[in-house]
Design a protein around this nucleic acid. Structure first.
Length: 766
DNA sequence: GACAGAACTGGGTTT
DNA sequence: CAGTTCTGTC
């Protein structure tokens, strides 16, 4: 291959980063500064210097990013690129655990539990321990466990840690430590790891098996980590250990784009990186090649409000570009129509493609209004994220069969398929089997395959038949049949496919096609020459770790408008970007506001969203929005005020026509009382019009507002709310843990509000 | 044990 | 509202 003079295409700091010979390197890469290009060329450069691709480990944020980077490297250095170790933390270390997991007592066929599996297992354990799942919400407990694991706190350490114990007691869940223990044991018995275990166990592996650590330390002469600002403690320690021999660790990141704290990402990793590596070389990439000056400057004016950040000066030398549009809509549905119309017009006026547009929102639930509006205008779109293909019931059903065939200890897969298709085995029998297994310290499969020793009667025969069926699948695996052969055989003989085939409803048909599609993708997996191993076991490992961003379009039509959450948009760019739903309590989210921690992460999220745009940015918000079937009034997000107004251009608010059929979608909640003398339709109009301007809301930080303990709050108490001011409790509504206080606020126009005490921060006024 | 309809209950981002 | 769990009936 002709020598590519790629170094000449780089600016000085980029070139410096690419050609840094040895030793720790930190690349602070501002948004749009050509980070991927630098990372790609650096790997190519290293290989040109004689480093074997086999000795390079590159950790990316999505598997798709890894694949694209591999292709770009291939374009520079040729075929050798396929020997690079590239992928997400989870997929790379899942692969290593497949090789080395037996040191920790797992087989190479361990299952990876996804969030649903974890939740289902936790629910089972909570029930078995006789705890109330209204108090112990499985998701909450799992979050606690997850953050413990990400901080490398074992269940033993958790139970012995007074801080955790006090916190749990204060949250009235003193048994979380016990649940953690049970959960870990059950996963282990099932030969299963959850997402956090993949990292946690890698740490344990490297801690307790120095020969293994040594092997990989010497193998990976260069370790690179992309999106370093989003690594957690567990991931950081892995990379530090792996690179401690050669000290060739190269991290790339942007502290301003750290948006995953909720799953344990620790921004301190990047802020303090220098402390761990005294002879660290730091390169800053500050020129933005992606966006117009207006967009870059507006983004800077927002992020400047954050305190904690590394000093840098991101700038653009591109054209100035047009101002940022701000659109105000009357309702969420109107927001959808305005944005869709806007896309339609821009597309026609500037002859653009659908792929040039992206609509970014804070929560997946917001997509609906945009889908409807785009469909009406015949604009093709794709939704990234949300309920993914692999979360559909029928897909999970077949996958459960496949999982159980590979790993008969997989309790969650077992529970899913034992009565599917219906074979007359109910919850009672299943619970009996699971409990029998747990009590005897046996796996579920040991009980099932010797069912006659444990239970007698009608169910026993059915279960025995089921065991025989699974054993017959096992034979196929032993014969070394590929994933597709086994999977289609199982789909046919398990009765799953037949059941769906017989279902002639529209949904049934769609489900049948989904199964076929899954089988197709397994076929593709088998036929892909890049996959060395095409067994069912190998396929299952990749499936669970598929990122939402990794998923392909369902058909060949790629020219679509993209709808996704801001989190999903990380690393992507679009000519036209619409950031929608800019309302208080939505973005920034209510939960962030009620935690009253600083809003720095939400602000970074806004920054990420803004910097996705190349040419033109549009912001929008609605004045009212449906929430659980109720129409709520919204106020514009504080973030809108944080952009320097000189970059903004406020569109005139449009009046929607109430008379047409669309207005029905904008109707107020049926629960709103129709005032005397009004017809329903008239209330509709008066409700939509901001009749009463809300009292001015003070957005400035409330300083040291300290919320009181509201567990004994009662009617008549005087309270202060940081936003709504002083008020009096008029009514308490207690329903288990769901405690609501209705408060009459003194301020004009505030009126009465009912607040959920678990969210509201109130100060009781003496 | 299966199913239909009633009652209830979420409150966010994802590997 | 939408998705899940509970309850009553066959």
């Amino acid at each position: 291959m002709a020598k590519d003079n790629y170094l000449e295409k780089l600016n000085p700091p980029q070139r410096e980063a690419v050609t840094h010979p040895e030793g720790p390197l930190m690349i602070i890469a501002g948004a749009g500064s050509g980070k991927t290009r630098v990372l790609t060329y650096r790997i190519a450069w290293l290989i040109e210097q004689g480093v074997d691709p086999f000795n390079i480990l590159s950790l990316t944020f999505t598997n798709k990013a890894a694949g694209e980077m591999r292709q770009r490297i291939e374009a520079v250095i040729g075929n050798d690129a396929k020997n690079l170790w590239m992928g997400t933390f989870h997929s790379v270390f899942a692969k290593i655990l497949r090789f080395e997991g037996k040191r920790l007592g797992y087989t190479s066929d361990f299952t990876i539990y996804d969030t649903d599996d974890s939740r289902s297992l936790m629910r089972t354990i909570i029930k078995e321990l006789g705890l109330d799942d209204k108090t112990y919400k499985p998701n909450y407990v799992l979050n606690r466990i997850s953050s413990a694991k990400n901080a490398l706190v074992s269940w033993e350490a958790y139970a012995n840690n007074p801080v955790y114990m006090e916190d749990d007691k204060a949250a009235r869940m003193p048994e979380i430590g016990r649940l953690y223990k049970m959960y870990v044991l059950r996963c282990f018995q099932a030969n299963a790891m959850d997402f956090d275990d993949l990292l946690y166990n890698t740490n344990v592996l490297f801690r307790d098996h120095l020969d293994v650590l040594n092997k990989y330390q010497h193998k990976f002469k260069h370790v690179m980590v992309d999106e370093f600002q989003d690594t957690n403690v567990s991931q950081y320690l892995i990379t530090r250990k792996l690179s401690s021999v050669h000290q060739n660790i190269c991290i790339v990141g942007d502290d301003a784009q750290s948006i995953y704290a909720f799953r344990g990402a620790n921004i301190q990793n990047i802020l303090n990186f220098k402390a761990d590596y005294p002879d660290l070389k730091v390169v800053k990439l500050e020129q933005n090649y992606r966006s117009t000056q207006t967009i870059v400057n507006a983004a800077n004016s927002v992020i400047a409000r954050n305190k904690e950040q590394l000093e840098k000066n991101v700038f653009s030398e591109n054209e100035e570009g047009s101002k940022i549009d701000v659109i105000k809509a009357a309702s969420d549905n109107e927001e959808g129509r305005l944005i869709a119309t806007n896309i339609f017009e821009e597309k026609n006026n500037n002859s653009l493609k659908n792929t040039d547009f992206a609509i970014l929102y804070r929560t997946n639930a917001q997509s609906r209004a945009f889908e409807e509006a785009l469909r009406k205008l015949n604009i093709k779109y794709r939704i990234v994220g949300g309920l993914s293909f692999y979360q559909r019931k029928e897909i999970k059903d077949l996958l459960a069969y496949l999982r159980f065939t590979i790993n008969q200890n997989d309790e969650e897969a077992f529970k899913r398929i034992i009565n599917l298709p219906k074979r007359g085995i109910g919850d009672t029998t299943v619970a009996k089997i699971v409990v029998t297994a747990a009590e005897n310290g046996k796996s579920v499969w040991e009980v099932v395959s010797n069912i006659n020793q444990y239970i007698a009667g009608r169910a026993a025969q059915t279960i025995d038949d089921f065991a025989t069926l699974i054993k017959s699948y096992g034979l196929l695996i032993e014969e070394g049949k590929d994933a597709h052969t086994v999977a289609s055989y199982i789909a046919k003989t398990s009765g799953l496919l037949k059941e769906l085939y017989d279902d002639k409803t529209v949904e049934g048909l769609a489900r049948y096609e989904n199964i076929q599609e899954l089988l197709n993708s397994i076929k593709q997996f088998v036929d892909n020459p890049e996959n060395e191993e095409v067994t069912l076991s190998a396929f299952l490992q990749t499936v669970t770790l598929m990122t939402t961003a990794d998923q392909e379009d369902e058909d060949g039509d790629h020219d679509r408008v993209t709808l996704m959450t801001i989190h999903g948009a990380k690393g992507l760019e679009f000519k036209y970007v619409y950031i929608v739903g800019l309302e208080e309590n939505l973005f920034p989210s209510q939960m962030m506001l009620s935690k009253r921690s600083d809003l720095e992460e939400e602000r970074r999220l806004f920054y990420v969203a803004i910097t996705r745009a190349e040419k033109k940015l549009t912001l929008s918000y609605a004045e009212s929005r449906y929430n659980y079937g109720r129409l709520n009034y919204c106020e514009p997000s504080r973030f809108l005020e944080e952009i320097d107004p000189k970059y903004l251009q406020i569109s005139r608010s449009r009046v929607i026509s109430y008379g047409n059929s669309d207005a029905r979608n904008d109707r107020p909640a049926t629960s709103s009382p129709v005032p005397a003398g009004f017809t329903k339709k008239e209330t509709l109009i008066s409700n939509l019009r901001p009749v009463q301007k809300a009292a001015p809301v003070n957005h400035t930080p409330t300083g040291d507002f300290v919320a009181s303990d509201t567990s004994n709050l009662k009617a008549g108490d005087k309270v202060e709310h940081p936003k709504f001011g002083y008020g009096t409790v008029t009514k308490m509504d207690i329903n288990g843990n769901d405690r609501k206080a209705t408060i009459k606020f003194d301020a004009q126009g505030q009126g009465e509000k009912t607040l959920l005490l678990s969210f509201a921060k109130l100060r009781i006024v003496e």
